[in-house]
């Protein structure tokens, strides 16, 4: 990990703690997760106690301490999606990917997450693959989506 790169990102922002979330998000966009030595560097540079920083990265859902998959699938569990059967969609993903929600497949292809409302309530049930929304999901669509995304045809 090149720490100069981290320093450059930090320099773009004001050095008070209010920039913390933005800095960490940008670093994560670069590395897909937040490695230990990077966090130590951020704490040092922003002069934030490591205890506070470790609390923050373990509190907010956006931060990841382990590498995530190429495709991050987020299944919306908002109320509107729930009454239209979103839990069934999540379970179908779990079955097909053979992982539990919050986990990543071993080949780092997929990470499965749940999200409490994406704000596309008219389209429910909704899933999001990286930045794309997929509306009106059902079990059949889950299968075709995974087939389309996985190059190896494993899922």
């Amino acid at each position: 990990m090149e720490l100069e790169k981290i320093d450059k990102i930090i320099e773009k922002y004001s050095s008070d703690s209010s920039s913390l979330t933005s800095i960490l998000s940008e670093i994560q966009a670069e590395y897909s997760f937040l490695p230990q030595d990077v966090l130590k560097r951020v704490a040092e540079k922003l002069e934030i106690p490591m205890t506070q920083l470790f609390g923050v990265v373990n509190f907010y859902k956006i931060f990841k301490l382990e590498p995530s998959g190429k495709y991050i699938i987020r299944v919306c569990l908002g109320t509107a999606c729930h009454v239209k059967g979103a839990h069934g969609i999540l379970e179908e993903f779990e079955r097909k990917l053979k992982i539990r929600v919050g986990e990543t497949t071993k080949d780092l292809a997929f990470t499965l997450e749940k999200v409490n409302c994406l704000g596309c309530c008219s389209l429910g049930p909704v899933a999001m693959v990286n930045d794309d929304h997929c509306g009106q999901m059902n079990a059949v669509k889950v299968n075709s989506l995974l087939k389309r995304l996985s190059s190896s045809g494993k899922y």
Binding site: Q36, T51, Q52, L53, F54, F59
Partner: peptide
């Protein structure tokens, strides 16, 4: 000292040292 702090949310909240 500030060697320990809270991490996690809700039921997963706990008191730990960094890492």
């Amino acid at each position: 000292s500030g060697a320990i702090g809270f991490i996690g949310r809700g039921e997963k909240r706990e008191v730990v040292t960094p890492f």
